[in-house]
Design a protein around this nucleic acid. Structure first.
Length: 495
DNA sequence: ATAGGGTTAG
């Protein structure tokens, strides 16, 4: 603990040096200090040489709050409590901002805002809201956010661009699209950020078409920047809208700055878009032309190739990543690698990758990894080995895992008892009891065993519980036209 | 002093 010593109380002395130059000197020192001990020295010096009456002192204290908050929030809080007698809104904002920026104490931004309200001598200003709203957005604190919105209106900041952008962001993060839209529609003035944040809210809530409409509208008043591009690429990926994605790609190359065109993030989204739209050659082309690859670039390619059954290629990307680039794969890398193995039924390789993931790379397997392994084993008919994995794993198995075992059971002659056991496990989980998958699989097992009475019983159980088969739905673009189709839908089969 | 990228995993 660096800061064990309590602060000495502020004792104004008669021979203080109270010149502006002196304060400037202290400020200069503060701007240069990078460690807590330096900060403490300057603070001690400040105590000896200044008093609270000087108007510059509060400003100086605010700087101390700000700088200390970058190192130690407890110090900031203690400093606030011990030395600042009459805080103004600037002081409160500084502390709120510090909490909002922190990684694990964001909720204290809201608490400090409350403290500000309770102070009685100070009123929030237009800078206060972006800070505290940011914390709310991160915490999905919709109710608190709405109350803040009311205060914004009450205090007369309802037309401030910054405040409104923060509100849109908040409502977007909390999934409250209507509220986000309302703020966006009502605001008297919009910046690029307003559009970006609105588009991003739509994309995040899977309103891809709406997002694209918004994007087109935006271009009447602003040039799209890197932020907008990323959101739109995500929308294209979600829709499988290849032509628009290619248009965005061209736009990036022609109209955006070299920084945006070369940005790893933007390029990763391009990769993902091409993969999701099924244009893997283009994805590979873009990948090879990127100046820099990060883990995500590699992961995106591995997943994209694996999902399209290009297993050899996917594993080759993994090999290049670790052998040639010496990059550290992460949890997501292995979920791609394992899913590649699963797609091609490579049991030995899959087991092997699973092992090196934990032993060589020290990555803790999560449910996704176990799911892949179990599915791989079950599909290969190694039901008992799959069950061994499920029983020995430290995480509670979910519906997906039980379902992949049951699915494997239904495809071969495995004892009915084991299948029934599996179905029971699926129904026990909350999602499993509401979705049709488990029931359908169980009836398939009975059907395979020609136990028609049981098939009927399962159907009846589904009716009684009101479980409906939910159709799978997807979209694909063919010759520039987007087609939406459902599972079992044969309208596109002639193409 | 104030707004926006948490990318990739069914």
């Amino acid at each position: 603990m660096i800061l064990a010593t309590p602060f000495s109380p502020m004792v104004p002395t008669n021979n203080n040096i109270q010149t502006t130059t002196h304060h400037h000197h202290l400020l200069h020192l503060l701007n240069q200090c990078s460690t807590i001990s330096q900060l403490k020295q300057i603070h001690a010096h400040t105590l000896r040489t200044t008093t609270t009456v000087h108007p510059h002192t509060l400003f100086l204290h605010t700087r101390i709050l700000h700088f200390s908050s970058l190192h130690d929030l407890n110090y900031t809080l203690r400093f606030f409590n011990t030395h600042i007698q009459y805080p103004n809104s600037f002081v409160y904002n500084t502390v709120i901002r510090a909490f909002a920026r922190s990684s694990d104490r964001k909720h204290e931004a809201i608490l400090f805002y409350l403290k500000m309200l309770c102070d009685g001598n100070v009123v929030p200003d237009k800078h206060t809201f972006p800070f505290v709203l940011k914390a709310c957005a991160y915490l999905f604190a919709l109710e608190e956010g709405k109350q803040l919105h009311a205060q914004v209106v009450k205090l007369g900041f309802a037309s401030d661009v910054y405040v409104n952008n923060s509100l849109i962001h908040l409502y977007g993060s909390c999934g409250s699209l209507e509220d986000a839209r309302n703020v966006f529609d009502e605001m008297p003035e919009r910046s690029v950020v307003s559009w970006n944040v609105m588009i991003d809210a739509l994309v995040q809530l899977n309103e891809f078409d709406e997002a694209l409409v918004c994007f087109r509208e935006m271009q009447e008043s602003f040039e799209a920047d890197g932020f907008a591009i990323q959101s739109v690429l995500r929308a294209c990926a979600g829709l499988g809208a290849l032509s628009l994605g290619m248009w965005v790609h061209a736009y990036v190359l022609k109209k955006c700055s070299p920084e945006v065109a070369g940005d790893v993030l933007v390029n990763n989204y391009l990769l993902d878009m091409y993969c999701k739209c099924g244009s893997l050659e283009t994805a590979e082309f873009v990948f090879e032309r990127m100046v820099k690859h990060d883990v995500t670039s590699w992961n995106t390619m591995i997943h994209g190739l694996a999902n399209h059954g290009k297993v050899v290629e996917a594993l080759e990307y993994f090999r290049r990543m670790v052998d040639e680039e010496r990059l550290m794969p992460n949890s997501i890398t292995f979920s791609g690698v394992l899913s590649a193995c699963r797609h091609s039924g490579m049991v030995d390789k899959g087991r092997n990758y699973f092992t090196i993931m934990t032993t060589h790379y020290g990555i803790e397997p999560v449910l996704e990894h176990y799911g892949c392994l179990v599915d791989l084993l079950a599909r290969a008919g190694l039901i008992s080995e799959a069950l061994d994995v499920v029983c020995s794993m430290p995480i509670k198995p979910d519906v997906v895992i039980w379902r992949s075992i049951l699915d494997a059971c239904s495809k071969r002659t495995v004892g009915i008892e084991i299948s029934e056991e599996m179905a029971k496990k699926i129904m026990e989980t909350e999602e499993g009891s509401k979705l049709s998958g488990g029931y359908v699989l169980l009836s398939r097992v009975y059907a395979a065993a020609r136990k028609w009475d049981e098939v009927g019983a399962v159907r009846k159980l589904m009716d009684d519980k009101g479980v409906a088969k939910e159709p799978g739905c997807s979209t694909i673009e063919i010759d520039g036209v987007a087609h939406e189709f459902f599972a079992g839908d044969t309208s596109l089969s002639r193409i």
